[in-house]
């Protein structure tokens, strides 16, 4: 069964689990635990600690499937970022557009994967773009990567993000991205 994989990563509370849930054929496998860090308590009740896993059946005849893996957001779980990147066709980095800290964290993820020598397409999704006008500037990152303003609960938005990533993959134009 050919299975391909897309990694969904980004800071805490950026909508990764929701993003996967929105398009997954199966109820996503989640590893959520109660938030215990002081700085995050109150923002949401639970957070991913190992990974989220969703799947889209592409073609029954060929048994072709697309796996969606979500990473934990916090940097203390960065060892899982390392594990989950294995074999990904591309990376979707999500950040909460209404949260400056979240947007400012995008380079952390870019640099992490860059330091690992990961050379695959990356698309950035700014979530909650529909809910608030306070969309923080992501600087010159937008010159190197496609940046989409999305609502992670909106199927069309999620589809658009994935399609942008896959199209970028097919163009093989991701290799020269600078940031």
């Amino acid at each position: 069964m050919p299975a391909y994989k897309i990694l969904v990563t980004g800071p805490f509370n950026s909508g990764k689990t929701t993003f996967i849930k929105t398009v997954s054929d199966i109820a996503p496998v989640k590893t959520e635990k109660i938030v215990t860090e002081k700085e995050y308590i109150g923002i949401k009740e639970k957070t991913t600690v190992a990974m989220d896993f969703g799947m889209i059946a592409i073609d029954k005849k060929d048994n072709l499937v697309l796996h969606l893996y979500g990473t934990p957001g916090q940097t203390r779980f960065d060892f899982m970022w390392d594990i989950l990147i294995d074999g990904a066709l591309g990376i979707v980095i999500l950040a909460d557009s209404t949260d400056k800290k979240s947007v400012n964290a995008i380079p952390v993820y870019l640099n992490f994967y860059k330091s690992k020598g990961v050379d695959i397409p990356i698309v950035i999704g700014l979530t909650r773009a529909d809910k608030n006008d306070s969309i923080y500037d992501i600087g010159n990152i937008a010159q190197s990567f496609p940046v989409l303003k999305i609502n992670a609960e909106d199927k069309e938005d999620v589809k658009k993000t994935l399609l942008t990533l896959l199209e970028r993959f097919s163009e093989q134009s991701y290799g020269n991205a600078k940031y």
Partner: peptide, 18 residues
Amino acid sequence: VVIKEGFLAKIINKIRGL
């Protein structure tokens, strides 16, 4: 990684049709 011709297109088409 080798992707058969058509597989990528199938993935793209499937997502478009979701």
